[in-house]
Each structure stands twice: as C-alpha cells, then as structure tokens.
Amino acid sequence: MKIHVKYFGQVAEAVGKTEEVLDLEKGTNLQDFKTRQVRAYRIPDPHSVQIAVNQDLMEEKDLEEGDEIAFLPPFAGG
C-alpha cells in the first residue's frame, strides 16, 4: 500500500527532503513505521517527534492505503 509522508523542521533536515511516497506492507503499525524511519534517516531526538496521520496527531494506528503521515519535531526559535 502507498502512503504519503511529510517531514518538518529538523526531521526534514535529517531526512533530506520534505515529503515522499512510500510503499508499505498492509497493516504496518504507526510506531513501527516511526522506528523504521528514525533508524533509516537517523532522525535526532525521536522521543520528542510527534506523528500525525491524516492531520490528527496520534500515537497508535494500523496504517492504511493513502494515509498521510507527518513527522513533527518541536521548534523553539523566536
């Protein structure tokens, strides 16, 4: 199944892009997917990075075809 992933802030810098489309095994768990991306791209401070699926910030979900996932790190600048 295809999912659409968006990266923000320092996560986008670690990943080297702001979005991508990935082909995942059906029913992949959200946290497993996060861990996979964290390892693949060496995303810094993963425990602080929040995840949204289809614009809702959440922790648990079995991913589905067409889901849009956002990786959101905290920012502090001002």
Binding site: D45, S48, L57, P74, G77
Partner: peptide, 16 residues
C-alpha cells in the same frame, strides 16, 4: 498535550 516530551536540541534563531 502537543509535546509531552521535550528535546535536548534547543536551537534558537540566533543559532540557525
């Protein structure tokens, strides 16, 4: 609720 866990990487506008 948005960020229950903080990060050690405090990067300010002065720095970036």
């Amino acid at each position: 609720c948005l960020f229950p866990k903080t990060t050690r990487q405090n990067i300010s506008c002065e720095a970036t």
